[in-house]
């Protein structure tokens, strides 16, 4: 564990708390892509099956449980509790385009051709693109509530912080995880446009609006 990974994980935790807070405070999941949230739930479930047979640390165990439980809770909030506030007609990204390639890539580029290893690899590839439906929705509506942008920023910062973590681990432990690094670069890259607007506008008190 190093400071970058710890801060990254805390940013990830923060993003989830911000999202739940947004839904409960506004009593609405307007502006949130159900598809992206469902993909994250799938990411956590497929990645964390090792909970059942591989002990790493208490920290690791608790965080994994939290991410699985909170992602399912968010799906519950969106699908049942605040269902009327979710508008599927603007959440139209075809997730088959993300699920299919992630699955086939995980069959080809993996560390070991075993069920759990392929599930892990699939989850890494899928996570890197799972934000697409959310960004697509943002693009369509052209604007977002400020609190939603804080959620996205925390999520992007989490991924960005994993990059110095890998550099640090390469230097200090000689550890390289090419699959995670490649996917992490892609995932962080997807946030660059968003970060630009967030840091230049939202943090200066302006509304998140994309140029027409």
């Amino acid at each position: 564990m190093n400071i970058f990974r710890l801060l990254g994980d805390l940013a990830h935790l923060a993003s989830i708390f911000v999202l739940i807070h947004k839904i409960q405070k506004t009593r609405s999941c307007r502006g949130i892509s159900f598809k992206t949230q469902a993909l994250y739930a799938l990411v956590f479930v497929t990645r964390y099956v090792d909970l059942l047979y591989h002990w790493i640390s208490l920290y690791n165990f608790v965080m994994k449980l939290f991410f699985m439980a909170s992602s399912c809770y968010i799906l519950y909030l969106m699908k049942f509790r605040y269902r009327p506030t979710h508008d599927p007609s603007i959440d139209t990204f075809k997730i088959e385009y993300l699920l299919g390639p992630s699955f086939f890539l995980s069959l080809i580029f993996n560390y070991e051709f075993s069920l759990t290893e392929i599930m892990w690899t699939f989850s890494i590839y899928l996570e890197s693109v799972a934000i697409f439906p959310q960004l697509f929705m943002l693009q369509r509506t052209g604007e977002a509530e400020t609190i939603t942008t804080h959620y996205l920023a925390a999520l992007g910062i989490y991924r960005a912080l994993y990059l110095p973590n890998w550099i640090y681990r390469y230097i200090t432990q000689d550890m390289v995880d090419p699959i995670a690094i490649t996917a992490g670069l892609v995932q962080t890259g997807l946030y660059l446009d968003f970060f630009y607007v967030y840091f230049t506008k939202v943090l200066h008190g302006q509304k998140f609006e994309l140029p027409a």
């Binding site: 990830h12 990645r47 090792d50 591989h54 790493i56 994994k64 560390y111 994993y162 995670a180």
Partner: peptide, 10 residues
Amino acid sequence: TGDRQGHDEL
């Protein structure tokens, strides 16, 4: 990739 002690990152 041989010496993976499981995936320790989240």
